[in-house]
Design a protein around this nucleic acid. Structure first.
Lengths: 125, 125
DNA sequence: GCCCTGAATCGAAAAACGTCAACATAGAGG
DNA sequence: CCTCTATGTTGACGTTTTTCGATTCAGGGC
């Protein structure tokens, strides 16, 4: 359950951190990988899910706490969580009856690093 | 041509920078505003467009330089540029026959700040 | 004025997406 | 084993998105 295409996209975000959006034109492959990540964040429900998970003390949230926060059916939430997982943003683990989700460490920081031009690159001092 | 809904979404990203994704669960409104921005970046073509514009020495690119970089029709590129503009990420100006695009200053940094948890908030030291 | 070039808009078709109801699966606890 | 609860999966449907060709608009030059 916890291994999907995390590696690929994780790598994508990883590489991306070292060559930001504004440092050079993206090649098609990297653009495709990164677009998948941004697309995952490009939905209000998924953004809120991410926020609920990321802001959680302890880093983990049970699905049973996420679902009732929305006016959506349980399968829909499950579907959104799956997309976030396939984008390499979160992962999950079943523990008895419940499933817990957490944000993969470093992903958000790498993504932020990709967006923000490294200060040094901006101002050569 | 240069004033669309830039203000609204620009504000959204602005507020967001002060209350990151991981600091507290996003309310519906902010989630919707921010999702629009991420959705704009959630397409390979638009990501490449953003990158081509952002990485440009001088900060400006003529559409006539962007269009031939893709295997897509001119109207399609024009449409993607419009979406990026409506998301508050770029702006443009006509100069004679040509139209030039640039990345709105600070937008990418604010977005990055929204994603990356402020270091201080992470480690209270 | 007329035409030419660059870019945006319009209208339509195909593909992708978000959502649900129905069903399937995984554990816990009898 | 049977049942109950918590999640994931499937199939379908309406909406949105992506893309194009055709058209329109804006300026420059004749």
């Amino acid at each position: 359950m916890s291994k999907q295409e995390l590696t690929i996209l994780g790598r994508a975000a990883d590489d991306a951190c070292c060559q930001g959006l504004a440092s050079a034109p993206l090649d098609e492959q990297r653009a495709a990988d990164l677009a998948k990540i941004f697309k995952a964040l490009g939905d209000p429900v998924r953004l809120r899910l991410m926020s609920m998970i990321a802001s959680r003390e302890g880093g983990e949230v049970c699905v049973c706490e996420l679902t009732p926060a929305f006016d959506l059916s349980q399968p829909t939430i499950s579907h959104h969580l799956k997309l976030l997982r396939q984008a390499g943003l979160i992962d999950c683990e079943r523990r008895g009856t419940w499933v817990y989700y957490w944000v993969l460490p470093g992903v958000l920081d790498r993504l932020a690093g990709f967006l923000a031009v490294p200060h040094s690159a901006k101002e050569p001092v």
